[in-house]
Design a protein around this nucleic acid. Structure first.
Lengths: 338, 338
DNA sequence: TTGTATGCGTTATCAG
DNA sequence: CTGATAACGCATACAA
């Protein structure tokens, strides 16, 4: 006896079993037209017995849409990206669409991977520096709705980002207020978020007639921060404050200071960016700038949906507010001890 | 003049433009049969001019597969889940398949969502307590390859999990070695990972003739740990050591101890589980058990691929080793100061 | 209220 | 080496 071929039942089998046509089955299942109560009952019974579920492929092919959105990000590691993806998934899922993720951790064949992804979704979120402008153009030229997330803008695509320049300015002012004068930024990047943060820092230093030294590059990881900070802090003219490009770099810097016997904030002030979980639990707790990470993902999801459904046709830029979280790595706060 | 209908070119248009049949186009593109060099050149030229990319829907329909795998997890928040998903995405992507994620944060319609997901993938990873056994049975009964991740086993499905019982025993022994006798576990759950951890703790206490008190339940978050620990630590007979179900709970416990002026590890020992980033950076640094989170995801991905490709047909269980990470919240280590 | 027939975009088989 | 053509599974005008 031949084994059950394990093939999922099709709408045809349901129709035959219920003694109706496939059109009626479809109507009964989707409430998309009149169906006599008795007929509907027969159909539902057949569906039940056969454990029928419509083939996604068939549905998509007929509907002309994938009912899925994509998101491509540089690397899921690190709490920052994960949180954003979470916010994105939550909203997209609510809107009745699946989410397909693609992580391009410095791979080579990114273009191909993104092209593939583009063909299985109705819209795409491009997060950070994952694909270059030319590729973005190629995608938008297709007519595919695209929203950029925390990335340099490209004409024809939506953009969701969080505010960097003003926040970096506020952060710098705060450090200056503590009396620090030799400030160094750790972590450098020409464009994007990091570039904007530097811009804010730099302008504020200039405005206050404080010496500006170029930001020092490093990997945006704990180890990257540790290694670079070790180097910087060993110098005779080590800075009084290190403004780190993100929290992970700041955590590494804290480790380096500890290694070298430097007290924070006594001997050295340190600040981060993002407010990841570890920032709160580090001791001293990290002064940082909180980004609304989930909200970033959620906004991107909603913006994309607007583009897909056609509620809106013209690209829009959104900037989300950030918040300075003053903890203890930036200096003593005698009055308002928290 | 009517707007360009923005419709992606099909294989038919390529064929017409190249002056050949669609079969030839397909063969030329996929190297799936003989094509004269001259013909191939014509086809490729047409493809280039039209910027043709095969429709994923069409390909999948014809191939009879989705070239996508799914993963459903309880909540992307928290570093633990995110890391696992990362490992999963990395391997799955390497294997040439897309990954579709679904987060079931205590939603109601999970069954429907999972059913939907099941129809767009070739295989599914079920992570943690996201779907009940009945649903797992339903899925496997379909013939869909399923691998369970960090979850109670179900006949007919693969299982990838990390070792809990022995590690919990080792952790407990370590605490006993520090002289602690009044131990309490914070965070309770009947089955799954947490249940196994309690099992290991309990057995070790019994073996050492140390009093056993039931684990106290709490939310598996920082706040959950904070609130529950506050309660426990205010009691007259507060424990000497709190074994937390995971790192987030432990971080909350650390916060509670700080609030109450308790020194760790002087007045209280605390341990976590997972070794998330914040565990290393907390001060005192958290003694914990490291789970190979990325590896968990990677293994699940590979196991699923075996099932899908048919390399292996019978279910298999894999248990990954964990590692006790001794830092400073468990007690003084006079000799080997790290 | 129901059924028929067509289209959706490929792949692959089988003749030429 | 190339071309017709049959699936694949569904939704939906249109007819009845």
């Amino acid at each position: 006896m031949p084994r059950d071929t394990e093939t999922a039942p099709t709408i045809y089998e349901v129709a035959r079993r219920a003694g109706v046509s496939i059109a009626t089955v479809s109507r009964a299942l989707r409430d998309t037209g009149p169906v006599a109560p008795a007929t509907r009952a027969k159909v539902l019974a057949a569906v039940e017995e056969l454990r029928f579920t419509p083939s996604r492929l068939g549905v998509s092919l007929a509907e002309g849409r994938n009912a899925a959105n994509g998101i491509v990000f540089p690397d899921l590691s690190g709490p920052y990206y994960a949180e954003v993806v979470l916010g994105y998934e939550e909203v997209t899922s609510e809107l009745g669409r699946s989410v397909i993720i693609l992580s391009t951790r410095g791979q080579s064949g990114v273009r191909g991977l993104v092209r593939d992804l583009a063909r299985r979704v109705d819209g795409l979120v491009l997060f950070g520096q994952t694909v270059d402008d030319a590729m973005v153009d190629e995608l938008t030229a297709t007519g595919l709705p695209v929203v950029l997330l925390a990335r340099a803008p490209v004409p024809g695509a939506d953009l969701v980002a969080s505010e960097n320049i003003a926040a970096a300015g506020a952060l710098t002012e705060h450090l200056l207020g503590h009396g620090h004068r030799r400030l160094t930024m750790l972590g450098a990047s020409a464009g994007g978020d990091i570039g904007e943060r530097w811009q804010g820092v730099r302008q504020t230093l200039l405005n206050n007639f404080v010496a500006v030294t170029p930001p020092v590059p490093c990997d945006f990881t704990v180890d990257g921060g540790l290694i670079a900070a070790r180097e910087i802090l060993r110098r005779a003219d080590r800075p009084e404050a290190i403004i780190c490009a993100d929290d992970q770099v700041a955590l590494g810097t804290l480790l380096a200071a500890e290694e070298l016997g430097l007290r924070v904030p006594g001997d050295l002030a340190v600040t981060g960016w993002d407010d990841i979980m570890a920032a709160r639990h580090a001791r001293p707790a990290l002064t940082t700038v909180r980004q609304p990470m989930r909200e970033l993902g959620a906004r991107a999801a909603r913006a994309l949906d607007e583009l897909i459904t056609g509620v809106r046709a013209t690209p829009r830029h959104q900037t989300l507010a950030t918040e300075l979280i003053v903890r203890t790595t930036c200096g003593e706060h005698p009055l308002e001890e928290q």
